[in-house]
Amino acid sequence: MASPRPLWQPLRHCQRSLLAQAQQPLQARFLSSTTPAPASLAAASSSSSNANPNTSNTSNTSNAQQQQQPPPPKPKKPLTPAQQAFLSSALRVNQAGELAATLIYTAQTPPLVAREPHLRPLMRHMYEQEAGHLSTFNTLIAKHRVRPTALYPLWSVMATGLGWTTAVMGREAAMACTEAVETEIGGHYNSQIRALLEMVGEWEAEGYEVGGEFRELIGTLRRIRDEELEHLDHAVEHDAKKAEPHWLLTGVIRAGCRGAIWVSERV
């Protein structure tokens, strides 16, 4: 007589069937993610992976270097003897002019402020700017080994006498002196700036590089010129035109300034 079939066997068979059905979707998803790509995609992938990586990297590096490499610097044109002489005379006369300006304000301040104390801040402001200008040109004279004017002692005496005399004559005369001096000095700086800009234009047209130091010099001259013209405006605001006789006083001072500039450029 055959032994009876255990009851647990049909249950186990059913359990296995259910487990197989439950796991089938998960296996299908896993298999789809690992299914081989189409032939065209596989071929493209294979060709890109088989390409020479060194050639691609070298090409990219070369292009990047060409893009980042700066253009070769332009040559700088040496100064001609005439240009060197012009720059030397400009620095020499500018130093002499700023020395004279500081001495004029130094001599004017005590007698002028004694009668009109409210002018003390203005006189100090103008003197400090002139002292800064003088320090700038002292530095440039030493840096470029330019010989200062040989008439330093004469200009010192004349500037001190001019400042004291006009201050004793009164506020209007002192301001007229400033008006006359700054008119000549401002025009002189303008002529220097124009000459330097002409040099720059010629060099650039010929394909030469203009050095930063040269451009800085032009910027310095422009700044100083503007401050000198500011002094001129201050003088006019404080009744320079009311000096008597205005035309004679300013005419004589301006003529003296032009003569001093001409001599200092050469001696």
Rank of each mutant, 00 (worst) to 15 (best):
M199A: 02
A174L: 01
V210R: 11
H234E: 06
L112D: 00
S45F: 08
R16I: 04
P73F: 13
L248P: 00
R124A: 14
E116W: 00
R145G: 08
E230Y: 14
L79S: 13
D233H: 14
N60A: 14
Q65Y: 10
H125G: 01
L31W: 06
D226A: 15
R147M: 11
A240I: 02
M123C: 04
Q66I: 06
A2H: 09
R12G: 01
P4V: 07
Y189V: 00
L103P: 06
R120P: 00
A44S: 08
I218A: 06
S264R: 04
K77P: 01
H188K: 02
Q65W: 05
Q23H: 11
L248E: 00
A150K: 10
E244H: 08
Q9A: 03
A243W: 03
V168M: 09
A159K: 07
T220N: 13
P71E: 07
H188L: 03
Q84E: 12
A180R: 01
C257Y: 00
A260W: 02
L119C: 03
E202F: 05
E179T: 00
I224T: 13
H238P: 00
L140Q: 14
Q108G: 07
K143D: 09
R5Y: 10
K76P: 00
Q95K: 14
T55G: 06
L196P: 10
R215G: 07
A100I: 10
C14Q: 11
L7Q: 09
A82T: 10
Q66M: 07
R254H: 07
E184I: 03
T80P: 02
S45A: 13
T149L: 08
D239R: 11
I253H: 08
E228Q: 08
E116F: 01
Q21C: 12
G211Y: 13
S46P: 01
W164I: 10
A195G: 00
I104V: 15
T149V: 09
H234V: 03
P36T: 12
V168C: 05
V113L: 00
Y189L: 04
G256S: 10
N63G: 04
E237F: 00
I193R: 08
